[in-house]
């Protein structure tokens, strides 16, 4: 199983699509590692720098509704993974992106809008971190001496995929 949690990158917009996460012009790369420099390159968002330290240090993304819409490219979770980001917390996800995350053994965590709003109240904290207790299904955010915890739902199948390290290993032993 992968490790989950660490510094947060806040992306304060609905409908961030997979073209913004990894533009199609880089889909000609043959290895996942080669995608690394291009993370979120086309995302235009006030105060966001795809090449900045916050992006480099991030281990968790906190964002809004319908994250990962558009293309089916699994290059989107891959570019996050090779940059050390294994958790995305959002109000909702596009179906294919969500499945790709779990299939890769990564965590796509959905939380209701009021909770997402609370998470965004930590956006100004330079030291904001999120930790994830998958077994206990609890997420904790810390920053500027504050701390808040929330329980989350995860479908049993999706949890099994994360614990198995992804869908290929799971399916290979079962089908």
């Amino acid at each position: 199983m992968k490790t989950f949690g660490g510094p947060v990158l806040f992306l304060d917009r609905d409908d961030i699509n997979t073209d913004e996460i990894i533009p199609a012009r880089y889909l000609t790369e043959i290895t996942k590692q080669d995608l690394k420099p291009y993370i979120l390159e086309d995302l235009k968002l006030a105060g966001f720098d795809p090449k900045g330290d916050t992006t480099k240090q991030a281990r968790v993304i906190v964002t809004r509704a319908n994250f990962g819409c558009g293309s089916s490219r699994e290059h989107a979770p891959w570019v996050l993974e090779v940059n050390g980001i294994t958790v995305v917390v959002a109000e909702s996800f596009a179906r294919i992106f969500r499945q790709n995350m779990f299939n890769c053994g990564m965590a796509a965590i959905e939380l209701p809008k009021p909770v997402i709003d609370t998470l965004f109240s930590f956006q100004g904290c330079a030291d904001a971190t999120v930790s994830l207790d998958l077994a206990g299904q609890t997420l904790t955010i810390r920053g500027s001496g504050r701390e808040e915890s929330f329980s989350f739902e995860i479908a049993p199948f999706d949890k099994a995929l994360v614990l198995a390290g992804g869908w290929v290993d799971y399916a290979d032993t079962k089908y």
Binding site: I96, Q99, N103, A155, W167, A171, D172, Y175
Partner: peptide
């Protein structure tokens, strides 16, 4: 349905895919 590369890989190998 459109899927990612991992679902495609399992589809190629096993002829199955999981959905909600």
């Amino acid at each position: 349905a459109g899927v990612g590369t991992t679902d495609l890989e399992v589809g190629i190998l096993k002829g199955v895919c999981a959905f909600r």
